[in-house]
């Protein structure tokens, strides 16, 4: 029994040493998934002229995909919301979806004391909820009001979207779908509704539809004055 125990501990130790030497780079890991690449920068181009006022299919799809309640009280979690804007001078109305802008220089990442807020190599800004202590400083720092704090215990989470009370969360750009090579739930829903206002793609690939479109038509980033270089671009603002 003693030798058996030693063997287990020894093997476990060897494995752990292997894990410690090359975190994330073990062969079996690579066989099962590729790390997010810095050659990619995920982003979106939102054509506000195609976004229909009053339509919230993207919001519903997001809630369904990520297991959010869909409540709209002041303490409820909202990853994406529909904004109805009115130009104060001309009165022109604009409708658009608003969510985490996946900045290149995200203020939430700068201020997070535990580095729980982070940016993946492919530009997706996320919260590592294992590290988040719930201080909410990121919510104070975000210029887009993109983040929500989970004010209540959560039940029946989606298996690939873990979430829990006492941590901060926001749009993940449907990272679980992106890692499977799919598009985001909101973009899919918008296309399904026939609007095609949300174009998701790789900003770093000059041949991608999003890159070609951004090159061809005028688009803006929200609060571009802050110099955060968001991954989300808007047309028709």
């Amino acid at each position: 029994m003693n030798s058996g125990r030693r063997q287990f501990i020894g093997r476990g130790g060897a494995m752990l040493a292997g894990l410690a030497i090359a975190p994330g780079m073990l062969l079996y890991d690579l066989a099962h998934g590729r790390p997010a690449s810095g050659a990619v920068r995920w982003g979106m181009l939102i054509d506000t002229s195609r976004c229909e006022s009053g339509c919230d299919d993207c919001v519903k799809a997001c809630n369904k995909e990520n297991g959010l309640s869909g409540g709209t009280g002041p303490a409820d979690v909202q990853w994406i919301r529909k904004l109805e804007l009115k130009d104060s001078r001309t009165g022109r109305g604009v409708s658009l979806p608003m969510m985490c802008q996946h900045c290149e220089e995200p203020p939430c990442v700068d201020v997070c004391p535990t580095a729980a807020s982070f940016k993946r190599a492919d530009g997706i800004v996320l919260v590592d909820r294992h590290l988040c202590i719930g201080c909410r400083y990121c919510m104070m720092a975000c210029p887009y009001k993109a983040r929500s704090f989970v004010h209540e215990p959560v039940h029946d989470q989606k298996p690939d979207v873990p979430r829990g009370k006492g941590t901060v969360e926001s749009c993940t750009l449907c990272v679980q779908r992106v890692d499977r090579g799919e598009t985001t739930a909101c973009a899919e829903a918008c296309a399904k509704a026939g609007h095609k206002a949300i174009l998701f793609g790789n900003l770093n690939d000059p041949g991608s539809e999003i890159s070609r479109r951004i090159k061809a038509v005028a688009s803006t980033q929200i609060r571009a004055d802050l110099g955060l270089n968001p991954g989300l671009h808007y047309e028709g603002l």
Partner: peptide
Amino acid sequence: DLGRPERIIVAATHFNPTSVFAWNV
């Protein structure tokens, strides 16, 4: 007041040098 007060130790083990909060610790 933290959302996860039981994890306060994380503030010591994971340190983000760009965060004023972390400096304040």
